[in-house]
Amino acid sequence: MSTLSLTVLHTKYNLIETARVPIAIISALAFPTLALLFFVVPQQVVAGNALYATQAVISLAVFAVMSNALFSFGLTISENREKPWDPYLRTLPAPGIARVLAQIFATGTLGLAAIIPVIVVGGLFTAAEASPPRVLAGFIALAVSSLPFMLIGICIGYSMPSKAAIAVVQIVMFGMAFAGGLFLPPMLFADWLNTLSKFMPSRQARELVIWAVQGGQLEWWVWVGILVWTVVGFAGALLLFRRDEGRRYH
């Protein structure tokens, strides 16, 4: 069986399993939208300004994609490694890369679906604006920039038990959200924090999507950073997957 057809097969069943527990999908879809309604819409300074409102919507979209990727990869993988179904799947003739790719596609599909209500609410209740081709470009940029988060999630999932993964995912998620300027815009940052921020995949993701939607200059460190995080994350994920033998007891 080809790696491609096995990837499609695993993606399909991954999504079927998730869809059979609808609450998982509903919460993933609702959370970013609620955050937008509570934290951005009531602030007229931001919500009334087209530039700021669009950037706020983009930051929350990046945050949604990031938390979705970190949680669903970090937690799902570490939980699955503790269940006996996962070791069974490893005895099937599917290469590691097919299962890693399937997890990326399945979570990516859900993550992008979670962004749609954010854009609808942002378009209806704030001054955020973008032409349809720009929105499409933004989606593509989101998909590209979410790769490092998924791969970091995979690395967390394969390197620790689920109880540790919950804590680590939360620290990584909030750390990256603050340092990446997703909660507070980087223009408010001190110089040293701004420099640190440029190394964060969250900041790079934010800048890439803003560039795709609003245009302007794309700094070199944005795409180089995303590329480096993706390559390092992919290598780490593949290494940890191959080395993994399920949970170890001593």
Partner: peptide, 24 residues
């Protein structure tokens, strides 16, 4: 090989599990 019986994904149907494994 066989999974432990507690391992079967509870939300998948019997036919789906057989199909899923068989297509490998």
């Amino acid at each position: 090989s066989t999974p432990q019986e507690t391992a079967l994904p509870p939300t998948l149907k019997v036919g789906e599990v057989i199909d899923f494994v068989g297509r490998h």
